[in-house]
Design a protein around this nucleic acid. Sequence first.
DNA 1: GTTTTTGCACTGACCAGTCAGTTCAAAAGT
DNA 2: ACTTTTGAACTGACTGGTCAGTGCAAAAAC
Lengths: 222, 222
Amino acid sequence: MTARAGAPVTIGAMESSSTTAGGGSRREATRQKLYEAAVTLIAEQGFSATTVDEIAERAGVAKGTVYYNFASKSVLFEELLRHGVGLLTASLREAAEKTDRDGGSKVDALDAMIRAGLVFINRYPAFTQLYVAELWRTNRAWQSTLMVVRQQAVAVVEGVLLDAVAGGELSDEIDIPLTAAALVGMVLVAALDWQAFQPERSLDDVHSALSRLLQGRVSGHR
Amino acid sequence: MTARAGAPVTIGAMESSSTTAGGGSRREATRQKLYEAAVTLIAEQGFSATTVDEIAERAGVAKGTVYYNFASKSVLFEELLRHGVGLLTASLREAAEKTDRDGGSKVDALDAMIRAGLVFINRYPAFTQLYVAELWRTNRAWQSTLMVVRQQAVAVVEGVLLDAVAGGELSDEIDIPLTAAALVGMVLVAALDWQAFQPERSLDDVHSALSRLLQGRVSGHR
DNA sequence: GTTTTTGCACTGACCAGTCAGTTCAAAAGT
DNA sequence: ACTTTTGAACTGACTGGTCAGTGCAAAAAC
């Protein structure tokens, strides 16, 4: 039922250094299973509605093990958030850098980042869901964690926009923070809608619809 | 600051026929207070983390009153959702129609809808927050309510896009459902970010940043 | 022999929903 | 006029259940 990500790297993975290294590898594997169980359950039901017993059961471990590995339910969740956003920013940054290396323009880099965003959301839909659901909540324990982590992600987009303006590729009249937020939102919402309401569409379809918007080919002035 | 439409209509209000009218007016006033209390609490904490006692206390009524007026906590929430999205779609539709009446183009209508969306979010930030947080959750009791209600809102945008394509104003290569979702997402996320992270900006700032994206003045082909 | 996991019983707080009883304003009765 | 009755609206203490987190001895893994 759940989307099986073929890759060994999942939402909670650090690197899981294949073999070797005497380091506590068993523990890491357990944490891994817990992350995976938690991410889907919380995405479906929300944080409060998800019980620790459920998480343990889905992960196939005893409840005590959860508390052996994490100080509390919310600490488990916070670490999940931190790691997930880490993966996303890395992926965005890499897309931008690759475009640079290949001699693409900054707008090309933005386009590549849109694609990277879609790929990420496609691979970790549950994580994305949960991130969006929590991002604008006030009054929660992990608010500060989220702010930090959000800023990291948005900063990558802002950086490319800044370069593009500096290089004369984009008008210097654009409002960088707002435009960055709008772009991120465009990708986020389009992708979640894609997953939820028209999963039969291909990633390329979604990507080209968004590209068109970015490049002003929807209602661009002739 | 907030765009005062003059009307006493709030998130849960039907019409609350000022005075007179023999109709059960007290009851409506109570429901109203409950809606208002619930919307902020749930936006801040999420549905499951918000207790019925809290809602009752904030509304200044006894817990029993909540159950006298609503069958259950989730029914209260569902009615809240239905009403809020009703207000939003009405506001979008009106913006589009007014533009038509004033002889504006379809792209002008989209622009007007963006503004209407921003005004709505600015007036009911808590509702918007809560809507976004719940929209893509699966497995919840009110899933079906949400789907219906979402489709109503998106359909308004799709309708205008369709007209614009039919009238040759937009390329017929655009993917209407995806573009509509992307536009909605753009507004939603930009507005929530504005509220949460740079509330000092004016609505006009946000609007013009989004307009620029819509009209291809960010990276439009010369 | 040390680290990690298990299994399970237990606690204390919290919470959705219930229900017997209260309030009060308007309708009915006198 | 005035009293009485009615019933919708509201109250808040109570119940039955749930859940985060604990404690610990024994097993498994390394």
